[in-house]
Write a protein that binds this DNA or RNA. Structure first.
Lengths: 194, 194
DNA sequence: ACCTGAACACCGTTCAAGT
DNA sequence: ACCTGAACACCGTTCAAGT
């Protein structure tokens, strides 16, 4: 199969996915029908089904591409501001300053993922990569807090809880609106400080 | 209208709601159809629609009753262990030790609520009540940390972040399984500790 | 008033037929 | 190979008719 065809297929999939994402932002995951995506993309139902096996696979494709670029940026950055748990979370949650990444859609995908094994696998992959990137970034921080023998374990546990704290921010923002990330982290620190 | 009828109606609504909740736990919110609830409850479609205006109202009824009893218990308790942010969150999240309250269903309701104004109003009511209960419980804690003039504001900000931290635990648990609440809180404290 | 169940409009998905 | 759009099975909701 010639390379042109692969690029064409990918472009077509992204064209469908971005039309679908516009629908999702307007009407939500359960509120957008394939008919909506047909209207928004200008293609036919059959065309969409020749690029995605079903609605769930289309959702998984969108979910997989929505935050990945931010995680990649994080992995490639050498900014020392990202080497602390608060710094890493602040950077990652900054993705919601982008107009096309909405916490509402992310929260809906999480809900769906608890019922859809394929979507769950995609989300687990994205979030797992995020966790790994966090753990790598805070390794120096962990070394400073724990002995060399325990630093790896501390970085791992801390990266896991960073994921959960980001989820809390996202779920809260989706339901009650975005707040400054720094306020969230500062108030949380004060609340948990023994 | 005689009082018996009201009690009968309420009992019937709860009967339908608990049949629906069994379906939700099995197949999720988007995965359960009215036909499923019909089969599980032994009633007809028309009977369900004579007690709930539509599927969304049934969902809102379930969402509203799922955690409310735990919040009421919290409000009525005078246990000093609940007077600290960690203690309050530990108690509230303990609700998931109950077999019929699943974080997966809660997370799905949140996702739906970002698209359904009625469900959003119900969730905002439940979560708002939780926030108020948290704020009241930690007032002595806040007084100890801030002057009398600032204690109210600190309690309010802290109660808000407690809600978000609980949401993080729930979203994480729904996707990756329940962990001990104490581990979550301890790891979060270590991560955020400046 | 509560309930039944057939009927309707809509949605996800398929597939024979086109290019 | 990609695409069209009519067709099918299923789902939420309604409503005339029963008790």
């Amino acid at each position: 199969m010639p390379r042109v065809t692969d690029a064409y297929r990918r472009a077509r999939r992204d064209e469908i996915a971005s039309a679908a994402l516009r629908c999702l932002r307007r009407n939500g995951v359960s509120g957008t029908s394939i008919a909506d995506v047909v209207a928004e993309s200008g293609l036919s139902a059959g065309a969409i089904y020749s690029h995605f096996r079903n609605k769930a696979e289309l959702a998984a494709y969108i979910a997989g591409s929505m935050m990945t670029w931010r995680i990649e940026e994080f992995e490639e950055s050498a900014d020392p501001a990202l080497a602390t748990p608060a710094g890493g979370m602040r950077y990652l949650l900054g993705v919601f300053e982008q107009p096309d990444v909405a916490p509402e859609v992310v929260l809906q995908f999480w809900g769906e993922a608890t019922n859809d094994p394929d979507l769950h696998a995609v989300m687990a992959g994205v979030i797992g990569r995020m966790r790994t990137a966090f753990a790598a970034a805070i390794r120096p921080w962990a070394l400073e807090r724990a002995g060399a023998a325990d630093a790896e374990a501390l970085a791992g546990r801390t990266a896991s809880v960073m994921v959960a704290l980001c989820q809390g921010y996202i779920a809260n923002a989706a339901l009650f609106g975005l707040r400054p990330v720094d306020d969230y982290l500062a108030d949380a620190a004060a609340a948990l400080d023994a």
